[in-house]
Design a protein around this nucleic acid. Structure first.
Lengths: 204, 204
DNA sequence: GTCAAACGATAACATTTGTTACCGAATTGA
DNA sequence: TCAATTCGGTAACAAATGTTATCGTTTGAC
């Protein structure tokens, strides 16, 4: 594809990191990586709309995305994704059901996408390799834990504590993402997030 | 073991349901099921304490359990489990890390437990079978989705809506579980749950 | 450069939810 | 059976959070 020729260096830079985790032949590796296509999109591009069925998974070379849903007319941001992450509306992509979420760019983005058919075939093939299927299971498991932890923070922490955690663990997120997205991500109103910031600014 | 002889019918009744999902020889099946041991415990028995490392997974024949953690001195219930469910402090059991949760019976329970070593060996063996590893992946995936959905309900719904969902989808839970456990499970105080019930009782 | 839209801060007020305290019923254990 | 504990309801008040409105700044499109 022309996209592949447009920036072969970028693709290999990104996928290179995963090369040693794929104990497959160079030919297979070529085949797999060749299934990705590069696109560049402006900010606020909707890659997948709530209710549609996801056919693509994305790898983020540059930029950031958010996953959100419509709750009684207001947008609630559910998750953020940054460079080197793979993103899809996971439940829609896996099961072919209408997506519960929209997938939208926050900044201008450079993305690599791969079609579901290719992913399915790839997974089928590599899960014959014991070390690969352990990796896949671990990845799935870690994602489960991530949701569990995230949920836990909602049950355990106050909004202010959640914001402070974000500050400590993901300061880049605060820098790059508009505040009203962060507010809904934390489960509070924009106004209340302002109050919390104000409170923290003055000596706590 | 004597436990196995104590109630062979119960074990087969419970595991029988899974027999057709295990395309293994009768000998293997015998080996696997023989690794379970039956115990009976009173209500309020702590099967695993927060901070300990989980070595056992449980299958519930009769009764119900809750998973909870200590949050600044108060107990927060995170999940409930009923008959025919398998339970463990999943992250501790899988990774050998100190458990984030305690595991406690709510009612007098009849349980079957299996040691982690046996589970590991079992998983190792059966994941050679393609249909089995698909099942395992699906189970893991479904659990991820479950956490996602549960989390979603916290972000999207009001406490009253969450209670109504519980009423509609898991009415038996409301019947069997003490109300103050349910309150913390819903993320609200006991008093507030009382208010909600009162409000619903009078014509909404 | 200009205008409109997006973004964030703040204030005033309303609503939700938590806290504490008290009561009575149900359950449990000796 | 009795006393102690657990459990759930309610009221009064406090704290947290939402809602609406206003304002100034920044950003982006043309």
């Amino acid at each position: 594809m022309s996209a592949k020729h447009a920036a072969p260096v970028s693709l290999s830079t990104i996928l290179e990191k995963f090369r040693d985790k794929f104990p497959v032949s160079p030919e297979k590796w070529q085949e797999y990586t060749g299934q990705f296509q590069r696109i560049q999109v402006p900010a606020k591009t909707i890659l997948l709309k709530e209710g549609e069925i996801s056919r693509k998974a994305y790898l983020i070379e540059k930029g950031c995305l958010r996953v959100w849903f419509d709750n009684k007319g207001e947008e609630v941001t559910f998750q953020f994704f940054f460079e080197n992450c793979t993103v899809s509306s996971i439940e829609s992509f896996k099961k072919g059901t209408p997506s519960l979420f929209s997938l939208e760019t926050i900044e201008p983005c450079t993305l690599w996408w791969i079609d579901k058919n290719d992913v399915d075939r790839l997974l089928e093939e590599v899960s014959e390799i014991p070390s690969m299927r352990n990796q896949i299971m671990n990845t799935l498991f870690e994602r489960t834990l991530h949701y569990m932890q995230h949920f836990l923070s909602f049950v355990r922490d106050t909004p202010q504590e959640r914001y402070e955690n974000l500050l400590n663990h993901h300061p880049y997120l605060i820098q790059r993402v508009p505040q009203h997205y962060i507010a809904s991500y934390l489960g509070i109103s924009r106004v209340h997030l302002s109050r919390i910031k104000n409170k923290l600014a003055r000596g706590k």
